[in-house]
């Protein structure tokens, strides 16, 4: 912008011989070359880091799994030390999947509700304030959720759980022995609270992009607000909500500290979700790490690799859905 005066001052050397003015398009300046090299180099560095993560985790996992005297995928216990180490991820996989699924089942409907509240129901001033608050809440560190979950949420859930036990205890899933409910279900609820902000903020973005024309057309035809949302906003936002929930799922799967503080772990698959016990990949790594010897650390790395692959798949799927949607929305806008 302020280069305007320099136009007059920049080209004072008049091109003396017209023949000697090859437009320097092909000549690359050294500065350019250095800069391109630097920026391309850091892009490549990122790729190298990703490859290194996969490679090193795999190498250490191979060491661990080949030294495992039990089936790594189906064994229940985790004794990764001594002369005959035996460990398996069955309980961890179960706990990780169950707690994340509970989190999704609780969080996604609520998050869609909040996103709709912000995008279509709340008064405008409140809406922008809320959007702001949601973004701030997404930044609260997970250890604080964990602390709150362990010292505040857990004691407050006993009433709800014994009530669930009274009426749904016969299912076996919701039976509850009267102890502090440091269970997978509590973890699921806490994870749901943690992923609410991220799912909400992505869904809200999508709902706000819904074509105004469709909404106005529906309103003009006499649709109620709910019908407008059902017929024009939700179909438009469906893929966005799916990818938002998968991003949330990815976060729930890999969450460490909130689970480590709330869950009282054990290597049992408990049919009742309300009773304590079970474990997740990340929680197991965090709680077993301090007592692990080198082979034990390798074993934990092997379970970390499984977690890594699962989250990669979930996130990759979410990104693919988002990428596909971008093409559509270009046509819509």
């Amino acid at each position: 912008m302020n280069s305007a005066p320099s136009i007059s001052s920049a080209p004072p050397p008049p091109p003396a011989p017209p023949a000697a003015s090859p437009v320097s398009g092909s000549a690359v300046r050294p500065g350019d070359r250095i800069f391109l090299g630097l920026s391309r180099g850091s892009g490549i560095a990122l790729l190298v880091i990703m490859a290194a993560i996969a490679a090193f985790l795999t190498v250490r996992s191979v060491i661990a799994v080949s030294g495992d005297h039990a089936n790594f995928l189906t064994y229940f216990e985790w004794t990764a030390s001594g002369t005959e180490p035996k460990f398996g991820i069955a309980v961890l996989a179960f706990g990780t999947v169950v707690s994340s699924v509970i989190a999704m089942a609780v969080a996604v409907p609520v998050a869609v509700g909040i996103a709709l509240f912000i995008s279509h129901y709340a008064p405008r001033k409140l809406a922008s304030l809320l959007g702001y608050v949601v973004d701030l809440l997404a930044a609260v560190p997970s250890i604080i959720y964990g602390l709150w979950g362990a010292l505040f949420l857990v004691p407050h859930l006993t009433g709800l759980y014994s009530w669930l036990d009274d009426y749904l205890g016969w299912t076996g899933i919701f039976s509850y022995a009267d102890e502090a409910p440091r269970s997978l279900f509590t973890v699921g609820i806490l994870l749901a609270i943690m992923i609410l902000p991220i799912v909400t903020s992505v869904s809200r973005e999508v709902f706000l992009q819904a074509p105004k024309m469709h909404e106005e057309a529906a309103l003009a035809l006499g649709a109620t607000r709910w019908e407008v949302i059902r017929m024009s906003v939700l179909p438009f936002g469906r893929s966005g909500v799916i990818s938002a929930s998968m991003l949330g799922l990815g976060r729930a799967l890999g969450e460490t500290m909130a689970v480590a503080t709330v869950l009282s772990p054990s290597f049992l698959i408990n049919t009742s979700l309300l009773d304590g016990g079970g474990g997740t990949f990340a929680q197991n790594i965090a709680s077993k790490f301090s007592e692990a010897d080198e082979f034990g650390q390798d074993a934990l790395i092997a379970s970390g690799l499984v977690l890594f692959v699962i989250t990669l798949l979930v996130n990759g799927a979410a990104r693919l859905i988002i990428a596909r949607r971008k093409e559509y929305s270009g046509a819509n806008a």
């Binding site: 880091i49 990703m50 290194a52 993560i53 890999g254 460490t256 890594f308 990669l312 979410a318």
Partner: peptide, 13 residues
């Protein structure tokens, strides 16, 4: 993809 790496996996690496 990297955005979704669980923090504990980065630690393990």
């Amino acid at each position: 993809v990297m955005t979704g790496i669980p923090s504990i996996v980065a630690g393990l690496f």
